[in-house]
């Protein structure tokens, strides 16, 4: 009798596992758009270590340009938002295992990355400038970085841009922005490419720093799962609608204090 009891136990466990697997695969057939509408809730994967796009306010609530964008999306869908705070390690896994509906984390929409996730049209462009020290007179732009040390936050648009533009520089990549900034401030690196607004703020606080010219113009897009054209199409329609009315330029100025450098590409 006891032996039978045990095998029934195993059958029950197997049954639960199969049921879980089945529900998981069954729900994947439906577009995320329909899932969000039915659920009444948008699961937003957000990156909060990249001011002024995503950061925490004093109450540890998400705030910034990316956050306002997500709120606007939820408003149009007439659903609530559930924030999922992500880091570089779990961002993509959250998205690909259906644990978030989209990721807004100043993703640079490179063709290489687009093999893995689908990107919407870009929602923001911004100037990437080179933050450096006044005393380093021989560094005037990113062209003078041969043999110099460059601090960046790994995987950001600035990392991707400077890796391409300054192939002879020594690029040191940190896990998050505060650590990279601290390393630069402690002169562990000669320069740090960063968003214009951040650089302006730093230069104002520290008289020894200066901006050593423009590195490039970056833009960011929202990441979604591949193979879900309905959802991507809805988001792109959203982008067109609000972009056309200047909403993104307005949001950009709110968080950056300067005008969006170029009109977003349209195609």
């Amino acid at each position: 009798m006891r032996r039978h009891g045990r095998s029934w136990g195993w059958i029950a466990v197997l049954g639960i596992v199969l049921a879980l697997a089945w529900t998981a695969s069954a729900s994947a057939a439906e577009s995320t758009l329909d899932q969000v509408l039915k659920r009444g809730k948008l699961l937003v994967g957000i990156g909060l270590g990249a001011p002024p796009f995503g950061m925490y306010d004093a109450d540890k609530k998400p705030t910034g340009y990316d956050v306002d964008l997500a709120k606007l999306i939820a408003e149009e869908l007439k659903v609530e938002i559930e924030w999922v705070d992500t880091t570089s390690v779990n961002r993509i896994p959250y998205l690909l295992t259906n644990k978030v509906d989209l990721v807004i984390a100043t993703f640079g929409n490179t063709p290489e990355r687009a093999k893995q996730v689908a990107f919407t049209k870009p929602y923001s462009s911004w100037n990437l400038v080179l933050l450096g020290w006044k005393k380093d007179r021989n560094i005037k732009s990113y062209k003078d970085l041969k043999g110099k040390t460059v601090a960046v936050t790994r995987g950001t648009t600035q990392d991707i841009a400077i890796t391409k533009l300054a192939p002879e520089a020594k690029i040191v990549r940190y896990e998050d922005d505060p650590v990279a900034m601290l390393a630069f401030e402690q002169k562990k690196a000669d320069v740090m490419p960063t968003a214009e607004v951040l650089a302006l703020k730093k230069v104002k606080e520290n008289k020894d720093m200066e901006i050593k010219g423009l590195v490039s113009r970056s833009w960011a897009a929202i990441g979604v799962r591949r193979g879900d054209p309905d959802w991507l199409q809805w988001l792109n329609t959203f982008m067109d609608w609000h972009g056309g009315q200047g909403k993104f330029a307005e949001l950009f100025e709110k968080w950056n204090g300067v005008q969006m450098p170029v009109a977003l590409p349209r195609w």
Partner: peptide
Amino acid sequence: YIISQSTY
């Protein structure tokens, strides 16, 4: 990390 990211 969260506090570090908001306060630096």
